[in-house]
Amino acid sequence: MSSAPIIEARELHTYYDASHILHGVDFSVRAGEAVGLMGRNGMGKTTLIRTLVGHVPPRRGELKINGQVMTHAAPHLIARQGIAYVPEGRGVFPNLTVKENLLMAACPRPDQQCEWNFERVLEIFPRLAERLAHGGQQLSGGEQQMLAIGRALMTNPILLILDEATEGLAPLVAREIWQIIKSVRDSGIAAIIVDKNFAALSALTDRNVILVKGRVVFEGSGEELKAKPELLHQHLGI
C-alpha cells in the first residue's frame, strides 16, 4: 500500500446546477483513520461525500485518491480504489434478495486478498444470514443498514463512508450498528462517518470536521471539540 493518503481533496467547489454548495473544502483521510463529518442539515456534508465518491464532480479543485488524481473519475473507478459508500437512505436494492445484494458487490481487489467474503460478512451479521432469500424491501430499517454495511464490506474497502447510518433507528438497533462500526474500525478500515449522535461519533473518530455553509470551520480531535462547547452549541445544536 502506498503511503499517500487515501483521500486528499483540495479547494473543492461543488455546485448543484447554479447553487454553489461547497466553497473550497480541503479534506483528507489517511490509511486507517476515522474522520467524523459534522454540521447541521444543508451545510454540505452529503454533497462533500457525493463529490468524493464521484457522483457530483467538483467544478473546481482537485481530488486525489491513493495519490492519483481522480477529480472527474467515474464512480465505479473510485469504488475500485477501495472506497465503499453507504449512503443516507442505505441504497439497498429492493428488487434483489439479501444474498444477491451482497454477492453483486463482491469485487476482489487485484492488489490484495479478499479478506471480506460472503461467509465473513454473514459472521458479523447473523441477522442477515437468516434472511438471505428475502427481498431487500422486506427488511427492517436496522437490517437494511446491516445489509448496506455488509455489502460495502464485500467490496473489500480500505475506506468506508457512512452517511447517517443510525438515522431513524430505534436506540437499541442504533447501538448495535455502532458496535458493528466499531468492529469494522478495529479491523483497520478507515472511515468517514456522518452522524448526529456526537457522543457516539466522537468516541470512534480520530479527527472531526465541522462544515458550515460549505466551508470547514473546525478540524480537530473529539477532546479539542469538547473543550469548545460554544462550537458544539453554535454548529451542532448541542
Binding site: G54, H76, F93, L96, C107
Partner: peptide, 25 residues
C-alpha cells in the same frame, strides 16, 4: 448470474450500483 444481479441493481439504483464498482456505461 452476477451480471444479471448488476443489471437488476442498475435498474433500481444506478448510482449505488456504480459506487459498488459496477461499470455502468
Amino acid at each position: 448470474t452476477r451480471i444479471g444481479m448488476m443489471i437488476r441493481a442498475g435498474t433500481s439504483n444506478r448510482e449505488m450500483a456504480a459506487s459498488l464498482g459496477v461499470n455502468i456505461p
